[in-house]
Design a binder for these strands. Structure first.
Lengths: 248, 248
DNA sequence: TTGCTTTCTTGATCCTGGTCAAAGCTGACC
DNA sequence: GGTCAGCTTTGACCAGGATCAAGAAAGCAA
């Protein structure tokens, strides 16, 4: 495992439960040291499937670099993305033997993995890990519920704008820099993946992207590189309360 | 507080974190006893709002009897239900000061409450409570994701059938009895509430209910009392994999 | 009973987004 | 360079569900 990846793990995996060793005074450190020893890394190529629904999962993991998605499928093939795993997000469920969703790498992905059994044992002994996991799960639940509002009640245009705003915000907070109001980022998703996330067809996604471009809300340097001249204008299209939020 | 409610709490609140005292050998019993002492009950009438978004919440609670809903609203008034709280479900988030959703009682509701601060302190000291809470939260997350699939990809008819199947299943597992294949239950939701849950309009809900009735999939004794002559036939309408599931 | 309110049903019409089809881009590989 | 595959755009048409509107049914109080 090259050092660079370990370094990026240190950098980006701020939410990984194990990182608490550094900040928490009450930790039972030998347990955490054991966990630290047993972690290992796995890499996946863009497009590769990390797990199929019902696959045996004998590890849990947190994303170090790249983007993975969780999708569910109806028997006739209709699919809906139900989660987006970004760096520092956790994957897998303690106590669950089999995957509940298809997990796919949309870009090249590196994950920091722990074998499930020892991880579960460790959770029982070190309360901070499960408390941290609880917090992260509650955040995910909030995100899922916000997504339910989007899926159930927003128009196609609002859905697109919301997705772009989310990615832009994440990107901005990673880079901690926006070049004078002008915001730029790469879309890590194909039109089809966007459609699966938003509960639309790829044609509708494409049409709405074109419309937003035509009206100057976004600019497309290439099909996957977007710049937003006026972030507030994009926010106006989302249908959400425009409190300015994290980027204001 | 009448004894009957306490009894029903003992019966139905099987998932309430505090119940672990009975089953768990490793519990720090004095902490849990303290929690047991500080719990109190609150009742709400059907239609009453339990909390508005952004209200200060200084308690967490678990539902003892009745049904409450969590809803989110867009600024122009469109609303989406994002959660259904049934007996034994938990409400409120440790560490969160203000409500993130509107919480409304759809039937008369009794809740078993704990003041938030002491509850949080207790969580730190007794790991089993937070571990149980983690499990419950992960279950909720799964349910939310299944709902995302419904909202994003199912047709109106499939949505209605899915909702009826969910309520029927819950009801059946509560009663632990189905009268020879014939399944009966009361709908605890108005057509409008169903619409808010399913991301539809109430007119569409009404039309699809009529269609299912016309085709003999369900029977309506009154507008709120439903019987299902053949549960598998209802399941066929949901669009899900028909594995028979919990009721097979 | 009557009157009143809330909830539910049904019909007519409209429009957003889906479906089907064709063609344009872009990048990779030869 | 040329070719090919995958991704994306665009157009024409259609349909599912929304919207608008009118009544019916049920619940409730006087």
């Amino acid at each position: 495992m090259p050092t660079t990846q370990l370094e990026s793990y240190q950098m980006e995996c701020a939410n990984c439960p194990i990182r608490h060793r550094a900040v928490c005074a009450r930790c039972e450190t030998d347990e955490l040291a054991r966990l630290e020893e047993m972690k290992f890394y796995r890499s996946f190529q863009a497009g590769q499937t990390i797990a199929w629904t019902c696959d045996r999962m004998d590890f849990v993991a947190s994303v170090v670099t790249g983007i993975a998605t969780l999708t569910q499928t109806l028997e006739d093939g209709r699919t809906q993305m139900v989660g987006l795993l970004l760096p520092s997000d956790f994957m897998g469920r303690p106590g669950r033997e089999r995957a509940a969703y298809d997990v796919t790498a949309t870009t090249d992905v590196t994950m920091c993995c722990f074998r499930r059994k020892p991880f579960e044992e460790m959770m029982v002994k070190t309360p901070h890990v499960s408390q941290r996991l609880l917090e992260m799960t509650l955040d995910e639940l909030d995100a899922a519920r916000e997504w339910m509002l989007l899926l159930g009640r927003k128009t196609a245009r609002e859905k697109i704008a919301s997705l772009l705003a989310i990615i832009a915000r994440r990107d901005a907070s990673l880079k901690l820099a926006k070049t004078g109001g002008q915001l730029e980022f790469d879309l890590p998703l194909t039109r089809e993946a966007m459609a699966d996330y938003l509960g639309l067809t790829l044609e509708t996604v494409s049409r709405q992207m074109s419309a937003l471009k035509r009206e100057g809300v976004i600019e497309l340097a290439s099909k996957r590189h977007i710049s937003v001249p006026d972030f507030d204008r994009l926010l106006d299209e989302t249908g959400d309360d425009t409190d300015g939020g994290m980027l204001a």
